[in-house]
Design a protein around this nucleic acid. Structure first.
Length: 860
RNA sequence: GGGCGCGUAGCUCAGUGGGAGAGCGUCCGCCUCACACGCGGAAGGUCGCUGGUUCGAAACCAGCCGCGCCCACCA
């Protein structure tokens, strides 16, 4: 280390992440560590595909955790010597992005329709050029070692080609089809959306009861509804086939009030006898349930509400043009004056809302493109059942399977402009529909030569996301990247997109690449706000990860997130981030101690002194433990185990123990301490690197005899030959004795600075004497008797001892020992315990009892 | 309606059959020549409730109470 760097190290008593992180990161990127060669096989290589964040996104805590997890895994494997590729990219995020740009246009007073489709899409691309890189830059601040040089976007030309290939292939297979079907219409985005984009919310509505007169009778059938305006589209009334009250009416008709239409009275199992009057009005055009019943019974489907949310011509002149809400008011008023409104009462029920726009879903029948899923699902169910794809935590496997086993058709068309426009053309002249990867030549119909019209719709964003891991590697072309890195190893994500994304990736990969997309799915915890609410910008409960990086450093945030993560939801804890910051600082200062006192030593394990063997043993156990925790996706324990080793074992004990040897220094002849310290430090930094890459790389740059940067230094596989139970036991005993003496001193009122006059009853490790500040009497020539015995140490009276405190302390000790003796005696006095408990447990109790009795005796 | 998860120290969480743990916070003492983002020490818990299984339960089983999430077509 040159004198300038040495001076810097000496002067920097606090680790300063802001000074380090940008510089270190730029170095890594410059040297190309993030882009592995596309060579070798997927088995020997390692890859992860990032859940591509929305281009419109900015880094939130969920990204923070998920990407820290992925980066930790990637760094670990890169150090293990594998070509490690973290596939990076962003998602075009159809509705989200379109809304952002529309909002921007609105500020300029422009409606997207004024620009036209082409102009608008161009505008979105411009927006993406300008702002789309934000989230990617934010990932880099976290320390993400992804392959940013090969960043992908789900609307790149090559990616679009993959999407079209899949669409066309599924269409040819008959799985993708066009149909008039009940969809979730989102008035907010003015598009159909899939079932998965709908969320149910509890809402208080009014439940209206309406009398439908029965034809040829003066009886009425009373039906209940929360949406009276939809009655205009009723085409039947249903009762349960087993319902005695109405058995005679099945087959006859009633008359729809206000409209006068004859409605058949039908019998259907869906009808709940218990609910209301047991008679259900059937509106196939505006209720998903009624739609099913209608199709089963071949009922007429009438649409009275259009895609603009207004009543259509079919609703009749009195209502046409009204909004649904206005129509409801009018219908209720008309029913009342007609004297058929039998009742109204408040009613709480769950109602579908658009996840995206937040608006209430309008169920209606619409001509859309669908994908049948059952055939695709079957093999995707099988690979999970067979364990070719494993979920961690395991319980998500059931969640996945339950959904897959009841999968329903997927509405894939969206009435948006931003996205993959359907590769579908229509000939209005001859009625031909062409589904093709490329636009037909000259845009004309092959059959009749007529002009083709392209379908205006785009695909659901998740349709393209489903292809992410392989399309991002260049599929359908047979690229070197695909050959080297597919299938990927792990997918790390949050549970809310298991259906939307994870399941669909598995299905598409099996269908098109005949293989699973990844072997492991890790479902990480959801980080809630500190008060337990959802962390969200709109609730004002969000905490910005970037601010935490600014204040505490990226390593601190990474450590904190990993340490607080769990197999369940957790509340965000800034204390854990601070713990990470403290650990970074601790590593930094421990390193200063070692590096500034190591002279010209090089790292090498030393095994002469028992404390050296001890720390080596503890180090290797830590390497093993942290490694296996990471293998198990148990990041919290990996992080906390690292923290424990660095603080408790390395710093609190080993460094304190070897300080004298280090200070006496290599110059005085003890190279071992420095060499061993450098060895231990190096391996510790390597273990810590995947979790805390910046501080470890920075310290590493001061290490003598390093061959590479830490990011590509070998991962420290545990060297079990260094496990040393004897050294561990010996040092553990010395530590325990030291702590007992410190405790005794504190409680006996001896000030920390003053030495204790003592005699060792048995050989005692010199470190105990030093760390507990004992003045050991070599020849045993002491005036007076010992005032106390702590372990094997007799303590003599001295001017520092307060006799009353000592007496009180001893009595306290006696009490504790008596209680312990009583507990052990009780246990051993229980015949059943002695008879049934395992031998080692019983023996353990016996040993304890013996020890406590002996200690008690010593106290007198 | 069904499913999953959770209830342990003031706070956030570990702990899945043999003496209740960590971090933060609190209290006491230390600016000891790596670090006050530090060092040493301490206090603090009928492990949601009730039964059961067991020699032994925070852990396993059952029921209950409370909280959260997911799925579901009772209008």
């Amino acid at each position: 280390m040159d004198s300038e760097r040495r001076a810097k190290l000496e002067a920097t008593t606090r680790y300063d992440p802001a000074e380090v992180e940008g510089r270190i990161y730029a170095g890594w990127a410059e040297r190309g560590y993030f882009t592995p060669a596309a060579e070798g096989t997927p088995d020997e290589n390692f890859s992860i595909a990032i859940p591509p964040p929305n281009v419109t996104g900015s880094l939130h805590m969920g990204h923070g955790l998920n990407n820290t997890i992925q980066d930790t895994l990637v760094r670990r494997q890169r150090m293990a010597g594998r070509r490690a590729k973290w596939i990076i990219g962003t998602d075009h995020a159809g509705i989200a992005t379109q809304s952002v740009v529309e909002k921007e246009l609105r500020k300029e007073g422009v409606d997207r329709h004024e620009l036209g489709r082409e102009g608008f899409v161009e505008r979105v691309w411009e927006w993406r050029e300008q702002y789309g890189g934000r989230i990617v830059e934010q990932l880099q601040r976290l320390g993400a070692s992804g392959d940013f040089a090969n960043e992908r976007f789900t609307l790149d030309d090559r990616y679009v080609a993959a999407v079209y290939k899949v669409f066309v292939a599924l269409h040819e297979k008959g799985l993708i089809y066009r149909d008039n079907y009940m969809v979730n219409w989102d008035p907010g985005s003015h598009s159909a959306i899939s079932d998965l984009e709908v969320e149910n919310r509890e809402v208080e509505d009014t439940l209206y009861s309406i009398d439908y007169p029965i034809e040829g009778s003066d009886r009425v059938l009373t039906v209940a509804t929360v949406r009276p305006e939809t009655m205009l589209a009723d085409t039947a009334v249903a009762v349960n086939p087993g319902d005695e009250r109405y058995r005679d009416l099945v087959g006859s008709h009633c008359i729809l009030p206000l409209v006068g239409r004859r409605l058949p009275i039908i019998a259907d199992d869906h009808v709940d006898v218990e609910f209301g009057t047991g008679a259900l009005k059937i509106t196939p055009g505006h209720d998903p349930n009624d739609f099913e019943i209608g199709r089963e019974h071949g009922l007429e489907e009438i649409s009275v509400i259009g895609e603009d949310g207004r009543l259509t011509e079919a609703a009749g002149p009195a209502y046409e043009g009204l909004t649904a809400a206005e129509a409801q008011e009018r219908v209720v008023a008309d029913l009342r004056s007609a004297g058929v409104l039998a009742g109204e009462e408040p009613y709480v029920h769950s109602v579908p809302f658009s996840h995206r726009s937040g608006q209430r879903i309008e169920p209606l029948i619409s001509l859309q493109w669908f994908c049948r899923m059952d055939e695709l699902a079957a093999p995707a169910i099988a690979v999970v059942r067979e364990g070719r794809v494993r979920f961690t935590p395991e319980r998500w496997e059931r969640v996945y399977l339950d959904w897959m086993e009841n999968i329903r058709p997927w509405c894939v068309s969206r009435q948006l402009w931003w996205g993959h426009q359907l590769p579908v053309w229509y000939c209005d002249d001859c009625g031909t529909t062409i589904v093709a990867e490329r636009e037909p030549e000259r845009g004309t119909c092959g059959s009749c030569g007529g002009t083709l019209r392209r379908d205006e719709d785009v695909l659901d964003t998740w349709f393209s996301s489903a292809l992410w891991p392989f399309a991002a590697l260049g599929w359908p072309e047979d690229t070197p990247e695909l050959r080297a890195f597919y299938p990927t190893d792990v997918l790390s994500t949050a549970r809310d997109i298991i259906y939307l994304w994870v399941a669909r990736m598995i299905m598409s990969s099996l269908e098109f690449l005949d293989d699973v997309p990844f072997a492991d799915v890790y479902i990480h915890s959801v980080i809630q706000a500190p008060d337990g609410r959802r962390m969200s910008k709109s609730l004002g409960t969000g905490i910005d990860p970037l601010e935490l990086i600014d204040s505490h450093g990226a390593d601190a945030l990474r450590f904190g997130l990993l340490a607080m993560s769990s197999s369940q939801d957790v509340r965000f804890s800034e204390a854990k981030v601070q713990q990470g910051r403290d650990l970074a600082n601790k590593l930094w200062n421990a390193s200063r101690l070692i590096l500034l006192n190591a002279g010209n030593s090089s790292p090498a394990p030393a095994t002469d002194a028992v404390e050296d063997r001890w720390i080596l043993s503890r180090l290797e156990r830590t390497a093993e433990l942290v490694g296996s925790r990471l293998d198990e996706y148990d990041f919290a324990h990996a992080a906390l185990e690292l923290y424990r080793f660095v603080y408790s074992e390395l710093c609190d004990w080993y460094l304190e123990i070897v300080k004298p040897r280090l200070y006496d220094g290599p110059e005085a002849g003890d190279h071992c301490a420095a060499e061993n310290l450098l060895h231990v430090l190096g391996r510790t930094l390597a273990i810590a690197h995947p979790l805390m890459p910046f501080v470890t790389e920075e310290i590493w740059s001061y290490m003598p005899a390093r061959e590479t940067e830490l990011i590509v230094a070998p991962w420290p596989d545990a060297d079990r030959s260094r496990f040393d139970p004897e050294a561990e036991a010996e040092v553990a005993a010395a530590i325990e004795l030291t702590r007992a003496l410190r405790r005794w001193r504190e409680l006996a009122g001896v000030t920390p600075g003053s030495p204790l006059s003592a005699r060792a009853g048995a050989p005692v490790h010199p470190l105990v004497a030093r760390l507990a500040r004992l003045e050991l009497d070599g020849d045993g020539d002491r005036g007076g008797d010992a005032v106390a015995v702590v372990g094997t140490i007799e303590i003599f009276p001295s001017e520092h001892l307060d006799p009353d405190s000592v007496a009180a302390r001893i009595e306290e000790q006696r009490e504790r020992l008596r209680a312990e003796v009583a507990r052990a005696e009780g246990k051993l006095g229980n015949e059943k315990f002695v008879a049934n408990a395992p031998v080692d447990v019983v023996d353990g109790e016996r040993d304890k009892l013996e020890r406590y009795r002996a200690e008690l005796e010593e106290l007198g």
